[in-house]
């Protein structure tokens, strides 16, 4: 994984709703599967920190922003669609089994 390095992910949610909780759970599950130990997730509740939503120009919630590694990517939704999450993170599904060191 030399080319990939660590994953830095930011998840923007609007309050701790069931949808927010679902998105956090879905994200953790995917990350543990494909990048265990190599990721960091920051959950940002924009109800508490609206300025951060402004800075990141968040419209939809939940929004997942892949900050690192570049390029930057955005995924919206509760992340229940695993395939879409992976492709959104630039991880092709068939790569998964082979990408482990």
């Amino acid at each position: 994984m030399a080319g990939h390095g660590r994953y830095l992910l930011k998840l923007y949610i609007a309050g701790y709703t069931s949808r927010s909780a679902r998105s956090i759970k879905n994200l953790r599950r995917v990350c543990d599967e494909v990048m265990a130990g190599m990721y960091e997730i920051a959950v940002i509740d924009i109800l508490d920190q609206p300025q951060l939503a402004e800075d990141e120009k968040i419209l939809a919630t939940p929004t997942l922003v892949k900050v690192l590694p570049p390029p930057m990517r955005r995924i919206i939704g509760d992340l229940s669609d695993r395939e879409k999450v992976l492709s959104g993170l630039d991880i092709l599904p068939f790569e998964v089994p082979f990408s482990q060191e």
Binding site: E54, T61, R73, I75
Partner: peptide
Amino acid sequence: DPIPLETAGNYDLSGLLIRIEH
């Protein structure tokens, strides 16, 4: 946003609403 946007599940536009209200 020029960054491609992937949709993976249900969402709403609370982000926009909260920014306006704020």
